[in-house]
Structures are given as structure tokens and as C-alpha cells.
């Protein structure tokens, strides 16, 4: 056992297998058990990670001539030594079978919707029309922050949210409303640090006003179930809802800066 553990080939194999176990099972299944928010990692990301690990292992093994020779030893011996004929034969069959199985897995008919590449935050237009009124989005601030009572605005926002948004976005604002799982893409999770704090209020205004039908071309696939609320709500009601969202989640909205900047 010790002999194997000290051999570069088996060390490399152990690192690759351990990495796979960590990415596939530890992140996906062990972390939730110990109370850390996690979920199984999508296969596209697993493949990405494993490629990086594999390249890393090969680089390490071949960075030193002696280690590289030792690393190749078991492979070379398996390929040429007469006493490894049985193992060689097994591998000669196993590898094509493995490749064939992988190929079959990829091409076999499936009824699942294909994996999608979706821009969650597509670029907003510089201006939009709200029931015929043109509104410049660049530099636009929430007008309710400067006028009236914040308490009242939040009360309006809460009423609008509960009446219109809860079924999809959930009463915890986490995108887990009653209908959420019926949609693909699922409704936005406002509690995620990747959503509200990354966006200016003008961006959120645009998304509520125009909804799924108003997604730009690059926002494919255009199957968001979000309605275009401009036909139902008034501008102030939308701004009040935005105030409510930021207030409830505790995130500050992204602000405009003179120097610009991006993430």
C-alpha cells in the first residue's frame, strides 16, 4: 500500500479521484448535511473543474524529469510487459466500451429540456417607453426616495408585492413561490447577493415594466414568465415595490458613479 502511495502515478490518480469526490459528492451532498447551503454541481461545471485538475496533475508530474519517468512507468509496463497481457487485454476492451458508453449517454434520446446558457442580467436599453412616455434609464434614480413618506411607499410596495409577486417569487422573496417550479427559468431569488445588490433600481424598474416579453434579443431563451407590469401597475407602484424589495432583503441598490465601473 505504502509503495503505491509513494508512486507518482497513483498519487496523481488519488488526487483526480479525490477531486471528483469533492466536487460531485462533498459539495453536492455532504455540505447540506452539515448545514451549509449547497446543491449538486451541474455536470458542465464538474467537467470544467476536472479538466483543470487533470491538467494540473499532469503538469506537476512532468515538471520534473525523474518524476515524469516514474509516472509513466506503470503505463509503459502495462503496454509492453509480457506478464501484463491479461490486464492489457482488459483495458483494450474496457476503454472502447467506456468511450462507447459515454457516446451513448450523450446521444440517447432524452425528454429533458436541454441545458441552457442564459444571460441572467441582459443589458438594459438606454431608454424605455412606459405607456407611450419615454423614460431615460441611464442615471435614473428611484424618484420615491426623494419624495413623500418612506413608510407609506413601503406599505404600497408590500401590498403590490403580496398581491402580484408572491405566487412566483415567494413570501420570503427567495424565488420559491407556489408556482416557481413550473417555470424555466425559475423566478428570481431576491435574497441572492447576485441579484438586487448588483443592479441599479433603474434596471429593476426596466425588468418589472417590460418583463419577459421585453427581454432583449441576447436575453435568450425568451421564455421568462414574468409579465410586463406596465399594463397593470402605475409607475409609482413599481418604484414602491422596488423600495420594498431592497428594504426587505437589506441590500442597498447599486448606485451610479461618475467614474463608471462594472462587475
Amino acid at each position: 500500500m505504502k509503495r503505491y502511495l509513494s508512486h507518482p502515478f497513483w498519487q496523481g490518480a488519488i488526487v483526480v479521484v479525490a477531486s471528483y469526490v469533492a466536487f460531485e459528492y462533498v459539495i453536492g451532498y455532504v455540505l447540506p448535511v452539515i448545514g451549509v447551503a449547497s446543491a449538486p454541481v451541474p455536470s458542465s461545471v464538474i467537467v470544467e473543474y476536472m479538466l483543470i485538475v487533470l491538467v494540473g496533475v499532469l503538469l506537476y508530474m512532468s515538471a520534473d524529469e525523474e518524476r515524469w519517468q516514474r509516472f509513466r512507468e506503470p503505463i509503459r509496463e502495462t503496454m509492453v510487459q509480457p506478464d501484463r497481457r491479461t490486464l492489457r487485454g482488459i483495458l483494450m476492451v474496457a476503454f472502447p466500451v467506456l468511450i462507447g458508453w459515454l457516446a451513448y449517454e450523450r446521444v440517447k434520446p432524452s425528454y429533458a429540456a436541454p441545458a441552457t446558457l442564459r444571460a441572467v442580467h441582459p443589458a438594459p436599453p438606454n431608454q424605455l417607453t412606459f405607456r407611450g412616455e419615454t423614460i431615460e434609464l441611464t442615471g435614473l434614480e428611484n424618484p420615491l426616495r426623494e419624495e413623500g413618506s418612506m413608510e407609506e411607499h413601503l406599505a404600497v410596495g408590500k401590498r403590490i408585492y403580496v398581491r402580484n409577486c408572491v405566487p412566483c417569487h415567494g413570501d420570503l422573496l427567495d424565488g420559491q413561490g407556489h408556482y416557481a417550479q413550473a417555470f424555466n427559468p425559475v423566478p428570481a431569488d431576491f435574497t441572492s447577493s447576485g441579484n438586487l445588490p448588483q443592479l441599479t433600481e433603474s434596471y429593476v424598474f426596466w425588468r418589472i415594466v417590460k418583463g419577459g416579453p421585453g427581454l432583449p434579443r441576447e436575453g435568450t431563451p425568451w421564455d421568462s414568465a414574468m409579465p410586463a407590469w406596465e399594463t397593470i401597475l402605475e409607475q409609482d407602484e413599481i418604484w414602491a415595490t422596488i423600495l420594498y424589495l431592497y428594504d426587505q432583503t437589506g441590500f442597498p441598490p447599486r448606485t451610479w458613479e461618475e467614474e463608471g465601473g462594472h462587475e
Binding site: P40, P42, S44, V45, A113, T116, R118, V186, D189, S192
Partner: peptide, 20 residues
């Protein structure tokens, strides 16, 4: 935001992975 199929998105609760 990850490339994921419908089951994977459902398991993550969205297109972002809760841990990653």
C-alpha cells in the same frame, strides 16, 4: 450563472449554485 439542465436548476433552486 451555470449551464444546467432543468433538473440541475431545480436542485440548485435557480441558475446560481447556492455554494459556488
Amino acid at each position: 450563472t451555470m449551464i444546467a439542465d432543468r433538473d440541475e436548476i431545480a436542485a440548485m433552486g435557480g441558475i446560481r449554485h447556492p455554494f459556488l
